[in-house]
C-alpha cells in the first residue's frame, strides 16, 4: 500500500533531531534506512505525523577501534559491516551474523541503529549485542545515556528508549585473539527472518583443553533474544566432551522461552534452538581439541 501522509524533516545534528522528535509529542519517528519502518507504514501498522530523517547528521556512520572498544555509529549499514576490514578483525562473529540479515538490496540501506531500535525478535544484530555485552549510547533531551544491551532489549519491538531518544552508537568490548565463536540460524529461505538461531563465543585454554568466559544467546524463538546464563555457567571450564554438550542442551531446554506463530509452533522453535546450540557447542569443542581458531 502507499504510505500514509506525514511531514518530513532532515535535521543537521543530533540535538536538532531530538528537539524535532519532542516537538511532535511522541507522534514523530526517526527514519534511518527505512527497511523496517517503511514496510510498517505501508501496512499502516504505524502512521507517524512526521519522519525525522537522520541521514544528514554527521558522525553517525563511524567505525572506530579505540583502546578498549569497537564503536559503530547508528547509521552504519549492513553493507558497511560486511566490507569493513576493521570489523572483520575486531568482531568476526558480528560479520557472520550480518551475512544472514536480509538481502543484498536491503543491506545497502538498513542500519544497525535502526535494527536495535526496531528490536525484532528474530533480528540478528540485537542478539549479537546481547551476547557480546555491548553498550548502547543514546542521546536525548537530558543528554547522553549508556545502556547495556541486556537492559536495552525489553521485548518484541520494545526497548528502553524514551521519548525523543536516539541510538547514537553501539560499543563492543575488544575481541581477544584466539577467541572461538559460532553462529548458526535456521530460516526457510536465505534472507528471511530466522525461526531460531544461536550465537556464542568463549576463550579457550588449550593446555587445559577447556573454554572459559562462555557467552551464549539464542534468538528468533521468543519475544527477544535470550542469554542462556545457566548454560554459560555450567560450561565454564568443563572438559570438551559430548556428555557435557548433552547436559548443556538439557539445561537450555529448561531455560529458553519460546513462542509460536504462523511460521512455526513454540515447541518446534525451541527444539530448533537447542539443536543449533548443541551443534554449535560441538563445533567449538572440536576447535579446542583441534587447535584451529
Amino acid at each position: 500500500m502507499k504510505f500514509p501522509p506525514f511531514e518530513f524533516h532532515r535535521p543537521g545534528d543530533l540535538p536538532e533531531a531530538v528537539d524535532l522528535l519532542l516537538s511532535y509529542d511522541g507522534e514523530a519517528l526517526p527514519l534511518a534506512g527505512g527497511q523496517s519502518l517503511l514496510p510498517m507504514m505501508a501496512f499502516r501498522l504505524v502512521a507517524p505525523k512526521a519522519l525525522i530523517d537522520l541521514s544528514a547528521i554527521p558522525g553517525l556512520d563511524g567505525i572506530e577501534l579505540n583502546g578498549d572498544s569497537l564503536r559503530l555509529g547508528a547509521l552504519v549499514r549492513w553493507c558497511d559491516v560486511l566490507c569493513s576490514p576493521v570489523i572483520a578483525n575486531a568482531h568476526p562473529l558480528l560479520v557472520e551474523a550480518v551475512r544472514h540479515v536480509a538481502h543484498y538490496q536491503v543491506r545497502n540501506r538498513g542500519t544497525l541503529g535502526g535494527s536495535l531500535a526496531h528490536a525484532d525478535a528474530a533480528a540478528e544484530f540485537p542478539a549479537i549485542c546481547l551476547v557480546s555485552d555491548a553498550m548502547i549510547d543514546v542521546v536525548g533531551r537530558d543528554g547522553k545515556r549508556c545502556i547495556a544491551a541486556r537492559d536495552f532489549l525489553l521485548g518484541a519491538m520494545e526497548t528502553d528508549l524514551r521519548e525523543g531518544e536516539l541510538v547514537a552508537a553501539v560499543r563492543f568490548p575488544i575481541w581477544p585473539a584466539g577467541r572461538l565463536w559460532h553462529f548458526r540460524e535456521f530460516a526457510r529461505r536465505s534472507g528471511d527472518f530466522a525461526l531460531a538461531g544461536v550465537a556464542m563465543y568463549c576463550d579457550p585454554d588449550r593446555q587445559a583443553g577447556v573454554c572459559r568466559n562462555w557467552h551464549i544467546a539464542c534468538f528468533g524463538l521468543g519475544e527477544v533474544a535470550q542469554r542462556v546464563d545457566a548454560v554459560e555457567a555450567f560450561l565454564e571450564a568443563k572438559p570438551a566432551d559430548t556428555a557435557h554438550i548433552r547436559e548443556a542442551v538439557l539445561i537450555a531446554q529448561r531455560h529458553l522461552v519460546a513462542d509460536g506463530d504462523i511460521h512455526a509452533p513454540a515447541g518446534y522453535r525451541k527444539a530448533l534452538a537447542t539443536e543449533l546450540l548443541g551443534r554449535g557447542l560441538n563445533e567449538v569443542f572440536k576447535a579446542v581439541a583441534g587447535g584451529d581458531g
Binding site: 517503511l38 505501508a42 553493507c79 536491503v106 540501506r109
Partner: peptide
C-alpha cells in the same frame, strides 16, 4: 550505484 528497493525509499530521500 548501489542496488536498493525503490519501494522502501522516499523520493525526498
Amino acid at each position: 550505484g548501489a542496488a536498493v528497493r525503490a519501494c522502501l525509499m522516499l523520493a525526498v530521500q
